[in-house]
Amino acid sequence: MSRYILRRLLWTIAVVLLVTLVTFVIFYVLPSGDPALRFAGKQPTPQVLAQVRRDLGLNHNVVIQYLLYLKRLVLGDSHGWPGLGFSYSTGAAITPQLWQRAQITLQLVLGGAVLWMLIGIPIGVISAMKPRSLFDRASLVTGLVFISTPVFWLGLMLLWLFWSTLGWLPGTGFVAFTNNPVQWAQHMIMPWFTLALLFAAIYARIIRANMLDTLGEDYIRTARAKGLRERRVITHHALRASIVPVITLLAIDIGTLIGGTVIIESIFNLQGLGNWVLEGALNQDLPVTLAVTLIVTIAVSMLSLLADIAYAYLDPRVRFK
């Protein structure tokens, strides 16, 4: 088990290194023209350009440039760790903003993930227990509705209904949990649902399919032949086997969402990574785009490492491969 984890860890480190190289090539080397111009924002003064050259070491050759880039990442810079420099358009350091915004996005995505699992698993299980039943059909249709509803429309409808019409929930914005937990939850609940309904629908279908497969397995017949209660057969034997393959999927989805909740963050005015990357793109603020790209890719590989460890823990057959 520990050898397996070590191997996966080394592999992840290699992947992360590769990611730094690829991002470097994409942002520094591939585009034509002066890299300093691209990093410096929309209308740079000669002083800013000179500072960019100095900060990024653009006078050196590419290899040294990459090593400097790597060094800033690994050891940090004057603005914190990892060293991601400075936004020459807004005049703000990248790293502190990154951490702050990542927190908000993580709260959105992880809360959403918990919610969609809480909705998706029971629906998937109950549908599988009585396939083609009224419940199964109803959940299929409802799921299709959520899968095909555009996220921005869903978000706006929630806002319209619960904020402007019913007045049950506060509108947009973010309140830190540490400031006021109740208001935090009140502000997050609509973004969470907007995110979760789509995924709950997808996950319910996946879990239903996995459950139907598992329920046909011989070991389920054995569990019944042992005289177990049907409840235990479902929750202990069938669900356990059906949920393991979902873990990898969950990790990938969470990883992708960390950089991809642009729409929800915009609708609900959450100052997370998605909003940031949008601003960065509009302002041609390359350091921001680079930072988010890098962090999201690293987050995806970390999550897949976590998923593999969880998988090995839950499925003994993996450990011995």
Binding site: E217, D218, Y219, R221, T222, A223, H237, R240, A241, V244, L314, D315, P316, R317
Partner: peptide, 9 residues
């Protein structure tokens, strides 16, 4: 088949 009749996990 005792392989498939026992729960693998």
């Amino acid at each position: 088949d005792p392989m498939s009749a026992l729960h693998p996990l």
